[in-house]
Write a protein that binds this DNA or RNA. Structure first.
Lengths: 194, 194
DNA sequence: GCGCAATGGTTACAATTGCAACTATATGAC
DNA sequence: GTCATATAGTTGCAATTGTAACCATTGCGC
């Protein structure tokens, strides 16, 4: 009886080969796609990816606040803040403020913003279609499912915080990359400079 | 006879819904994964992702030059240069120069570098295993194939350069994000300042 | 040999990003 | 009411990244 061997050289083996390593391959794929799209948006519409994401959610869900936009775009609030201010400057958004809670903003696409969106959206879909042309309908459904499952799992691992086995011997400080040291001393938080 | 309707709301539709848009979802997935891994590498080994990639290829293919490393890691030569110099500074690499072509460097892991690598690699595989635990063996093989095909396709689209239908009316300059303007005037390339 | 384009690798600088600190407002305990 | 704590959003600064320019060397045409 012949020894059983691995049926095929696939994803998870016990040897590390960079170009079979799924995290690496995902990153490469996602990068090519993002850069491709980002260049076209920039060239054609003067839009960055964060700006585009903000417009996309507001097109579908008007009157969200900045944090709500952040939740729906997987961006952090700083990124949203910057995208919003750039879009406001170019009058693609309008911003109102909630009467009840004066901290909350109420964002929506302006007329101009909607006009731009109507032209970007088909472009985005066109790209996606070209990409998915590489797959048959069955594979597309599978892709959809796999991404969903992997994302869910990746989030779970991330939240577990310590997904790796405890390190026996930590790398000595001299060998670690320099820590990010905060230069500005913390400011005492009131009655300062006024 | 009832009207035929879309079998399921899946990937490519004619309406744009950010959280069904594959490029977006790929980017979110890849991001969670990368950040998770990057934090662990940094905490445990003081390694950035580019540094880790360089080490991973050199572990398997010693004596590559910087451009060869770049080719195998999907990084550009600047990124490789920076990762290499950081790794050299911490003595995880050695660098020699080709006698025949004095421009080429010959990189390999130092003893210390190999020691670090022996500890990082299992961690990487451990993460991958945890991630892929969300899928059954069949799905893993499919994932492998889908990533390969999509990457190939994405590269093709990218090289085609103009994957989008020609823009009828370009966005007026006033509405475009400010161009990246080079501030430093081109230096006349010799006999300057000497 | 000379001149010039191509290649390997580094450097300079600007744009982008990520994080913590910040201001302003709101909310809950007392 | 006061205080502390939480939340919305912005700002400042350092780290990272992307791009072009750069230097050194090589190879080719002549």
């Amino acid at each position: 009886m012949p020894t059983r061997r691995k049926s095929s050289p696939h994803a998870s083996s016990d040897q590390l080969h960079l170009d079979r390593f799924i995290p690496y391959r995902l990153s490469v794929l996602s990068n090519i796609v993002s850069v491709s799209i980002a260049h076209a948006y920039e060239r054609e519409f003067g839009l960055s990816i964060p700006e585009w994401r903000v417009m996309a959610v507001l097109a579908r869900y008007p009157d969200l606040s900045a944090v709500e936009v952040a939740e729906r775009t997987a961006m952090d609030k700083v990124a949203v803040s910057r995208a919003v201010s750039s879009l406001l400057a170019r009058k693609r958004l309008t911003r109102n403020h909630d009467d009840v809670d004066k901290r909350r903003s109420i964002l929506r696409l302006s007329q101009a913003g909607q006009a731009v969106y109507k032209r970007v959206a088909p472009l985005a879909l066109h790209y996606e279609r070209q990409l998915l042309d590489a797959l048959n309908p069955d594979e597309r459904r599978t892709l959809d499912r796999l991404i969903a499952r992997l994302t869910e799992r990746a989030r779970a691992i991330d939240h577990a915080e310590s997904w790796f086995p405890a390190t026996a011997v930590p790398i000595p400080a001299s060998q670690r990359a320099r820590k990010r040291t905060r230069k500005r001393p913390p400011v005492n938080s009131r009655g300062y400079n006024q």
